[in-house]
């Protein structure tokens, strides 16, 4: 039965271009969204143009200048081998970007596919996939990564694999829930009554409706992925030396904690700014485009 609530009127939009314009203006007008956008752009720019911004070769040794504090020559000081921490941080951003970009795109693709299969496919497939997602989620991420590293040895590819496997369930579940909700809506029934095929329904009518929330979730997942990479590298289980990564810079700094605080500070700040940036941006996007998207995972 239709119960219309007429107490809070909504004005139907008369054209769609002004609608997206209103949303963009809301994003830029919101200081959190603006801060997030600036930080995210900074992250991409510093990683992509690291060779331009760097003042030193990140792996060049300068033993006489080891463990120096910030100066004009070394903006963020040097480590125990005299390498320039500022330049190493810039190059470390490239590793973070690499893991986040590759990991999340692969995981998005798989999540979309598996989620739609679970949501639209037969019941047994749904149950099997759900169990699979539950099992993966039941492995505490870091503990699982440790077990894998114990057997396979540290590498960047392993980090990528861990990131992909652990983030797929999040996307797949989101897609599954929306697909299941959509499956029983009248417009999908209407498509079936019209004789539209399986592929047409999934691609033309379900995908456009689930893809938006996925991108918002992806933005909010970047901090998680970057943290996993930094964390594993911090434990010495990620990228191999001498490649610079925020995690390995922090690890070296941790071992020198009584001698100099600078590597810890310099390695941590970009990590915090990146996670903060993506979180702010993701939240702002969610508030504007999809206020009802899950608040937690």
């Amino acid at each position: 039965m239709f119960a219309t609530r007429s107490d809070s009127p909504t004005v139907p939009a008369r054209d769609s271009s002004s609608e997206s314009w209103v949303k963009l203006r809301r994003l830029l007008g919101n200081w959190q969204g603006m801060t997030g956008l600036v930080l995210v752009i900074l992250f991409f720019a510093s990683a992509l143009f690291a060779p331009v911004f760097a003042t030193h070769d990140p792996n060049a040794l300068d033993i006489p200048a080891r463990l120096s504090g910030p100066s004009l020559a070394h903006f963020a000081g040097t480590d125990q081998l005299g390498r320039d921490t500022y330049s190493r941080v810039l190059y470390g951003g490239r590793v973070a970007l690499q893991v986040a970009a590759i990991g999340i795109s692969v995981s998005l693709a798989f999540g979309l596919l598996l989620g739609m299969l679970a949501g639209y496919g037969p019941r047994w497939l749904d149950n099997a996939l759900l169990l699979f997602f539950d099992v993966i989620r039941s492995f505490p991420t870091i503990v699982m990564a440790l077990a894998a590293v114990a057997l396979l040895g540290p590498s960047l590819n392993l980090i990528l694999a861990i990131v992909i496997v652990t983030t797929i369930p999040g996307y797949a579940r989101l897609v599954r829930t929306s697909t299941m909700a959509l499956k029983n809506t009248e417009f999908i029934l209407a498509e079936r009554a019209l004789g539209a095929g399986f592929g047409r329904i999934l691609w033309r009518h379900i995908t456009p409706n689930v893809i938006g929330p996925m991108f918002i979730l992806a933005a909010m997942d970047v901090p998680v992925v970057v943290t996993v990479e930094a964390g594993l590298s911090f434990l010495g289980l990620g990228v191999l030396p001498p490649t610079a990564s925020w995690g390995s810079i922090l690890n070296e700094g941790y071992l020198l904690i009584r001698e100099t605080p600078w590597p810890i500070i310099a390695g941590g700040i970009p990590l915090v700014l990146t996670t903060l940036g993506f979180t702010f941006l993701g939240e702002a996007l969610r508030d504007i485009f999809d206020p009802r998207l899950g608040k937690g995972r």
Binding site: T227, L250, Y254, L276
Partner: peptide, 23 residues
Amino acid sequence: SVATIAIPSFLVSIWSLLVFAVM
């Protein structure tokens, strides 16, 4: 809230170790 969520917990550990225990 956003700030506390965004800072990875291992970084909080290292920084708090630096500030409260070492310094």
